[in-house]
Simulated scan of single mutants.
Amino acid sequence: MKIVVVGGTGLIGSKLVAKLGEHGHDAVAASPNTGVNTITGEGLEAVLTGADVVVDVSNSPSWEDDAVLDFFRTSTSNLLAAEAAAGVGHHIALSVVGTERLQESGYFRAKLAQEKLIEDSPIPYSIVRATQFFEFVPSIADAAFDGTAVRLAHVFFQPIAADDVAQAVGRVAVGAPLKGQAEVAGPERFRMDEFFRTVLAESNDPREVVTDPEAVYYGISPTERALVPDDDATLAETTYAAWSAK
């Protein structure tokens, strides 16, 4: 099976290409680094020739409101049009758990717009929504640091390893289209402030973690369950402790 992975040289994409290749699939990484640009359309026709499945794990280079919306709208529209012309039978996109609950953010408004384009397309589709990656923990702490303390709310948080996200997306890629969404999350549910307090202490980070009900998460004021999945989500096996010990 030929599976084109858009964003295939990034964190999730590179892992996904490797995993699919290990299982005997013709997994092709498509990104500007490989001569494929979903914004300009460069290389799309060639890379999609003979493709059975397209997996889009690409991300916008800018999170500024207008730029990120333009990226996902343009990229997704170009992809879907090229897939229709090439006869691709399954389009898969990686999205984020809680997207519809995080609409204060321009980024998540753009992700919801991307999902809508996919849902309205005639191409059979699957949308895989994942929680935050373990790999993003340092940047989340940095974003919450106000120069004095790391301020975080006492909300639920259920991060996942990038390897487990790639595995989940890979399983969907080789199966029948879901014609809907599936959620994947880590095996452990934490309170965000408590999780970061422990993690920073264990890594000898001297910054104090302050529980602040008014704290924002990338500009969003999340409700208690905004960042965690529904009860029917697929839970990965890798714990944060096991991942961080590698």
Rank of each mutant, 00 (worst) to 15 (best):
V128D: 00
E224F: 13
R151A: 04
F136T: 14
D232I: 05
L227N: 09
E188M: 05
D193C: 04
Q167P: 03
N204I: 01
A173P: 05
K246R: 15
D56L: 12
A176Q: 15
V184G: 02
Y125C: 00
G10T: 04
E194M: 10
V68T: 15
K19P: 04
V17Q: 05
V174Y: 07
S126R: 11
V57K: 10
E100F: 06
G98L: 07
V137A: 15
V17C: 05
D120N: 12
T239I: 00
T211S: 12
R207A: 09
A82G: 07
T223L: 13
E104W: 09
I3W: 02
F134T: 00
E45Q: 14
P122A: 01
S221F: 08
L48M: 10
F195E: 04
A143G: 08
A141E: 06
A27S: 12
D65F: 09
S203N: 15
D52T: 15
A149I: 08
A176G: 11
T74R: 12
I127H: 01
E224G: 00
T198Q: 12
P222N: 10
F196Q: 10
P222G: 08
Q167H: 14
D142A: 15
R101Q: 15
L16E: 04
V228Y: 02
P177Q: 06
S121P: 01
L178H: 12
A84L: 14
K15R: 15
T9M: 07
T223N: 12
A29K: 03
E22G: 05
A201T: 14
L16I: 06
A153E: 08
P159W: 02
E42F: 08
S95M: 07
I3R: 05
F133Q: 00
Q114S: 07
I12A: 03
I140Y: 03
V54R: 13
E188F: 02
A144V: 09
F136Y: 14
P32S: 06
D52Y: 10
A84H: 12
L94P: 04
V53Y: 11
L117A: 01
P122V: 04
K116P: 02
G10M: 05
G10E: 06
R171Y: 11
G170W: 02
L117T: 05
E208N: 12
A81V: 13
Y107S: 03
G43C: 11
V17D: 01
K15G: 01
A86W: 07
V209Q: 03
A85V: 09
E237Q: 12
V57P: 10
D164F: 02
A30H: 07
F72H: 14
V68P: 08
Y107M: 08
P206E: 06
A93H: 11
Q103L: 15
V128F: 00
F196C: 09
D230Y: 07
V5S: 02
E135A: 02
V17W: 01
A233W: 02
S75K: 08
V4L: 06
G41I: 05
F196I: 11
E64D: 15
G98I: 03
A46Y: 09
V96L: 14
I118E: 07
V28M: 11
F156Q: 14
A18P: 01
L200W: 07
G170L: 03
L117G: 01
F196M: 10
A82Q: 05
V36C: 00
L44P: 10
D231L: 11
Q103S: 13
A185I: 01
V199K: 05
D205I: 05
D232T: 11
V128S: 00
A176P: 12
I39S: 03
G24V: 01
E135M: 01
N37F: 09
H154V: 00
D205V: 03
N59S: 15
A51E: 10
